[in-house]
Design a protein around this nucleic acid. Structure first.
Lengths: 220, 220
DNA sequence: CTTGTTAATCACCAGGCGGTGACTGACTGG
DNA sequence: CCAGTCAGTCACCGCCTGGTGATTAACAAG
């Protein structure tokens, strides 16, 4: 049965400059799976996101995903847990040296920070798109984790500032953040949104100006 | 081989109160396919939208979809063509008896009309969600048809009104319509958006008020 | 060297998908 | 009456998906 030839065939595929393969290291494999899942979701979107694709991306057998995460659902939940630390890593927690005197100052800054953060994070964008496209249990949990982290961030930044009397800040802010999310998502797939080009830095500067104007319009 | 039993098996499944089946009517079949596609897309979303599902929904063989529409792409394009008439059917084209004196009056009315129209139209919502989730050729065409129809509607309603000087109306409006779209989409899947409940009529009234406030904030 | 544990893999399953070519059966014009 | 046209159906293909035992291989302890 040509054992030597068989051995050659069975040798794992060696991508060049990959000297040694980690073997029998559960923690590392778990991490590799989680990383692959996040990478895949960020790069390919949720459409072709499945057990097989993740396993392929992690370079391991899909069985391990069932073992270590209890299936795709558990894996998605693990991503959601990571999401809690997203805000911390991606969005500055201080005021950047400026003194925020009014609620309007605060919201302008938050809106612009959120805009940039979302633009820079493909994974987050895919999750937002996922949220408005599907209603499964897994995506609902993901959505919850995200909104909780975001609300926490806002609360932390808010300090003792309070919105102007007579304004439903929750509703207004929901609209403002909705605007940012849809704008960024739309730009990510087609470099434009409702006739507004969103490609060059100058385009984005215009969008930011409009956003500032809107925020200032409601909050002064 | 029990021909009689075979005949029974081959008899088409009769759903009760379906007395006669349309036979050999191409135009009707084409329409049935298109209707099934729109219905499926509206009810199930783009995730499980495929040749087999549409054929099943239309109660005909998928081969006919290839023949009459040249495949899924052509079918989607047919949906896009229909989209042009959406605005006409769904959103009033007149000013509802009110005189719009300012650009702010106009945009407030447009925003509220668009909000209600989108809330009432599941197909449109699915298409919007699709737009921000995928980048294929078919969805790009769909997106284009939609945005063109929308832009035309706005242009028609605008009349001779012009935005205030010094305001980038394109950018501002893109943000406003983005806000509406994301809000409605978010509500459609989870009855809320960024902590704002969107279930009861009262909830929506709050959202509409906030929207009015935002529009008035920028356009006066 | 043997035994047990556990990381990791393999082989296989049913079922759905998009897609294609051959077929049936009704109507129609010569 | 017969041949052509055309709506509609069927059977099949290869591929991929999610999911499940059974199996192999590395390592540590006795």
């Amino acid at each position: 049965m040509m054992p030597s030839a068989n051995a050659v065939l069975r040798k794992p595929i060696e991508i060049s400059a990959e000297p040694e393969k980690r073997v029998r290291n559960r923690a590392a494999t778990e991490q590799a799976i989680l990383d692959a899942a996040k990478r895949l979701l960020a790069e390919e979107g949720f459409q072709n996101f499945g057990i097989n694709a993740v396993a392929r991306g992690a370079g391991c057998d899909k069985q391990l995903i069932y073992r270590y995460y209890g299936g795709l659902d558990g894996l998605v939940e693990a991503i959601g847990t990571d999401l809690g630390s997203w805000v911390k890593d991606r969005i500055p927690d201080d005021t950047g040296g400026m003194f925020l005197l009014t609620y309007g100052d605060l919201m302008e800054r938050l809106a612009l920070l959120f805009l940039d953060a979302l633009r820079a994070d493909p994974l987050m964008r895919r999750i937002v798109a996922w949220e408005v496209s599907e209603n499964s249990e897994q995506v609902r949990r993901l959505s919850e984790a995200r909104s909780k982290a975001l609300a926490g961030w806002i609360e932390r930044m808010r300090g003792s500032l309070t919105p102007p009397k007579g304004i439903d800040a929750v509703a207004v802010n929901a609209l403002i953040f909705s605007a940012i999310q849809h704008l960024v998502l739309s730009a990510a797939v087609g470099d434009q949104c409702a006739g507004l080009a969103l490609k060059t830095a100058k385009d984005w500067e215009k969008a930011a100006t409009a956003l500032r104007r809107i925020v200032r319009g409601v909050y002064g």
